[in-house]
Write a protein that binds this DNA or RNA. Sequence first.
DNA 1: AATGAATGAGAGTTCATTCAT
DNA 2: GATGAATGAACTCTCATTCAT
Lengths: 210, 210, 210, 210
Amino acid sequence: MTTPKKLTRAEQKALRPIQILDAAFEEFVRSGFSGTRVEDIAERVNVTKGTVYVYFETKEKLFEAMIHHFSVPFQELLETAEGLSGSATDRLLSILGLLYEQIAEDRTTRELTRLVISEGQRFPDLIDRHHDEFIAPIIAKVDGLILEGVASGEFRAIPVEFSDIVVAPILTTTVLRLIFDDRREPPPNKEAFLRAYFDLLLHGLLAKPH
Amino acid sequence: MTTPKKLTRAEQKALRPIQILDAAFEEFVRSGFSGTRVEDIAERVNVTKGTVYVYFETKEKLFEAMIHHFSVPFQELLETAEGLSGSATDRLLSILGLLYEQIAEDRTTRELTRLVISEGQRFPDLIDRHHDEFIAPIIAKVDGLILEGVASGEFRAIPVEFSDIVVAPILTTTVLRLIFDDRREPPPNKEAFLRAYFDLLLHGLLAKPH
Amino acid sequence: MTTPKKLTRAEQKALRPIQILDAAFEEFVRSGFSGTRVEDIAERVNVTKGTVYVYFETKEKLFEAMIHHFSVPFQELLETAEGLSGSATDRLLSILGLLYEQIAEDRTTRELTRLVISEGQRFPDLIDRHHDEFIAPIIAKVDGLILEGVASGEFRAIPVEFSDIVVAPILTTTVLRLIFDDRREPPPNKEAFLRAYFDLLLHGLLAKPH
Amino acid sequence: MTTPKKLTRAEQKALRPIQILDAAFEEFVRSGFSGTRVEDIAERVNVTKGTVYVYFETKEKLFEAMIHHFSVPFQELLETAEGLSGSATDRLLSILGLLYEQIAEDRTTRELTRLVISEGQRFPDLIDRHHDEFIAPIIAKVDGLILEGVASGEFRAIPVEFSDIVVAPILTTTVLRLIFDDRREPPPNKEAFLRAYFDLLLHGLLAKPH
DNA sequence: AATGAATGAGAGTTCATTCAT
DNA sequence: GATGAATGAACTCTCATTCAT
């Protein structure tokens, strides 16, 4: 059952930076950049703080490397989105579903969002890069789908500001879970939430057609 | 003989803690709790470190006092919401408009939101209190209005999870502005945004009635 | 006999930086710049190392301030030299005597010379300043006196390179005392040394006139 | 089959410690004992830290070995001095010329002098040995020649303190070059300097014979 | 012989907090 | 009330040294 602990030197060496990045994620999430001690990160990996500095020059560079390391999944999401087919509605809902899973339900991305909000002022380059690589392409994708749906007559003609609004329940869920964590009752299950979200998105609140 | 300064000694004395709280807000917003130095706060008020400790026992207590101090405006919002009249739709949109102004457009509330997200883990009591005093009543109010509209036939029958979704564009705008600050192009003006938001909320995305 | 220890706040405050500079001198002389711990300096003054940082931003700035502080006596030497009168020979010997006292016999200047030699590479600006303020004026003074003596027929016609040579026994004595400290027998007394020095300087080594 | 590298393995092996000592010299000269990192020395030889410790137990022992390694040339100087012939004046000037070349003009000896001055307190045994092996014999030699010249009537009768004074221009030139390095104009060429030095040494400063 | 990952004992520096004035 | 000198604990980062490979 248990994996044997014996690793070769080479394996251990390849593993170390990943272990440190994982530990850094947990500690930075727990305490923020300033509140985290390099020694706490080291202890999580059962090494001394000197070892952390073997792999990362400074605490700041470690933070940045950690953010990059955990931003990877976004890439895959964007690629998946490209392969979708079906009506504009189908594809829009598929993407929103994927985004919900990736951003709101995945703890890693959720906490990454916390760090982006809390440490963004100290690491503006990080934020810009995050925006250019992830946010902008996603927004563009959603924008494109809406325009496509409008052009095909599937959607009502709506102004571009809609993108943020369409995506809003996903980021809102993410942020509310970040704020209330375990204190509030856990959020409704994914299916129920998405059903309500999509229903409102497609049909609106009013009982009578306009 | 001498012209009195603008403030009497007593007035000055009463002002000091307020000045410190204001300065604390700016510095905590800029650098977070751990990243802020008590001395930076003091310098903003042109006093020395020691003076801050005359009014606040510790940095933590100063932070908490600052949060309470700036949380006041929510009270008024809730009271205003109570006085509304009209159809459920009218009252809902009025409340959402007020919330948008209060949360997304008001810099103070916006930055307070940042602190709630970033420092919540360190100050759980603060978050609980924030939830009980502000979030819960607002959610309850929106929930109530929706149920009322459903009961009156004004709204379609929808599950309770809708509350968060209905409010989502407001929190999302807030958070996006926190993250991208000046880097992204400024958000659309209030009227255009609210028009799009309310239009989508009431009618949904689809071109054809269901 | 003993001076009472009670100092007012203001006196203590004015004294502190001087005390620290004195302590810094002793420690930097003992261990060099890199080898000296700020804490050792602090302990000499019976304060904690935090206190040192109240007065000096960094160890480097403390070092530089210390060098400046102890370079003061040179100023006085130059002023004294200006006031001399008599034949070129008289004035030259007077200056050399003063230099011997100031550089070779005064422990402070001697050790300052050690620091200039050992830490000069790390603090080139300090050395340049030291050169411009002290070495260059002294050399110029000696140069001037020699040229004057040559012009008046008091001295033989000699090339300008002589300045360094004329002063050499002073710097050499300084350096030899720095190197051998207490290990070698103490140097001859001042009078005997200067007598020999001046005799050789004025008359040369040869028994027969040229 | 394969062309052998320039050095056999055995040659390479014998070379390593020499390479390390050379690199150590450069780094210790640049930064002093405390300021030098073993890793910097290793990098100069294109090996890693560990390799240095294969050959030298500690940084201190490496420093001492380096000093010994570069002190060798003095031996030859002393032997050359033994072989001189001619008048006391001729032999004295020959020795002083050799000393000038060896101490003031040779970069290695010059920088070794810097280390003797700056690190002497940390390595007193080194200094004592340096004194016994190099300084004392040279001083003795110069002393002997002067006494010889006095006995033969070639030199005036002068006290023994003269030795240091006679040699002073050499050490002074050395130290001034150490201090001012490239910042000051380069020293006069050897011939001009020695001519002036010897002229003053033999005839003194005064225009009229005594 | 050579490596370089890892260590651990500091070193410089910062800063919340105290308290005599 | 206000000060700011002083503290001391904690933090980031360094580096001589070790040792399994």
